[in-house]
């Protein structure tokens, strides 16, 4: 492959007591691509996300993130807020986590906290009404407005996020993650609970993010329609182990993947049991 790698996962293992959620997993995601992580429930996908974004510290393994400009970060050594701030990895959550009592605009401004904090001279200059801070805030509002336009929620900018319908909340969470200017965007089941029209819109949005903004995307998804249509590269997990890795067409026809999703024929089970019996 010629494209540069953005994320390189090596021998990642995550244990919770006796339970091995992710076991010696290695794969890489490439720049400007949409990489999908799929697998049955409990395969360790969200655990992997929590390791990448620093909410869990992996038991063993290395997570190397390389920016397009060449700077590189070892994610397993950074606390989660520095992964978001310095390594510029943004994420969304499986069960949407918005600031429900704050408006859409406020949600997107909180996402630009670090830039605004710097502009407000760590609050001191901002407290005395510095011009530079006012300009920085205006720019931040412009950026928020841009993303609200892109997700089709500009008209509701001043409504509380908690009042939005579910599909719109999912889009807002993606927009909020994008307001941090990420190089890698991790989306945990962005299409869950969306209807067909909404997931078609989501496909368009994700492609646009990749093509126009050059953001690489790592995606957990159960909706195979979405996965097969927009992914450039798919990694399949089952019981914390990688069972397939490749382009959508290859993965779709992989025997192990089909077995993991659909189970195996009875004859094969009987055969295996006969072998296991003394």
């Amino acid at each position: 492959m010629s494209a540069a790698q953005i994320l390189n996962v090596e021998h990642l293992t995550m244990r919770f007591g006796g339970l091995v959620a992710v076991s010696a997993l290695s794969f890489s995601a490439r720049v400007h691509e949409i990489t999908a992580l799929i697998g049955p429930n409990g395969a360790g996908k969200t655990t992997l996300f929590n390791c990448i974004t620093g909410f869990y510290k992996p038991t063993v393994g290395r997570l190397q993130l390389t920016h397009p400009d060449g700077s590189s970060f070892l994610l397993e050594r950074l606390p989660e807020f520095r992964i978001a701030r310095e390594a510029r990895v943004a994420r969304t959550f499986q069960n949407v986590r918005l600031f429900a009592g704050m408006t859409l605009l406020e949600n997107l401004l909180v996402a630009q906290h670090n830039a605004l904090m710097l502009a407000s001279g760590f609050t001191v200059l901002g407290l005395f009404g510095s011009r530079a801070y006012a300009r920085a805030e205006a720019r931040a509002i412009d950026k928020a407005r841009y993303w609200l336009d892109r997700i089709g929620l500009a008209a509701r900018a001043d409504d509380p996020a908690g009042a939005l319908p579910y599909g719109a909340q999912r889009r807002l969470e993606i927009a909020r993650a994008l307001c941090t200017d990420p190089v890698l965007l991790c989306l945990d089941e962005p299409a869950a609970g969306l209807n067909n029209r909404e997931s078609a819109e989501l496909n368009l949005l994700l492609r646009a993010i990749r093509d126009e903004h050059g953001t690489s995307i790592l995606l957990i998804e159960h909706d195979m329609g979405v996965v097969m249509e927009i992914s450039d590269h798919i990694v399949v997990l089952d019981y914390g182990v990688k069972i397939a890795d490749g382009a959508p067409a290859e993965v779709r026809n992989d025997a192990k993947v089909i077995a993991a999703y659909l189970g195996v024929a009875d004859a094969e089970v009987e055969h295996a049991e006969a072998e296991a019996a003394p």
Binding site: T53, F55, E80, F81, R82, I83, A84, R85, A90, R91, F93, R97, L98, F99, A100, G101, M102, E106, L109, V110, A111, H113, N114, M117, R176, A177, T180
Partner: peptide, 18 residues
């Protein structure tokens, strides 16, 4: 705003680099 966001959802705050 970060204080209020913290009150609403601390984990989301950390995911946003706060």
């Amino acid at each position: 705003r970060a204080w209020e966001a913290l009150r609403e959802d601390e984990i989301a705050c950390r995911a946003l680099g706060i």
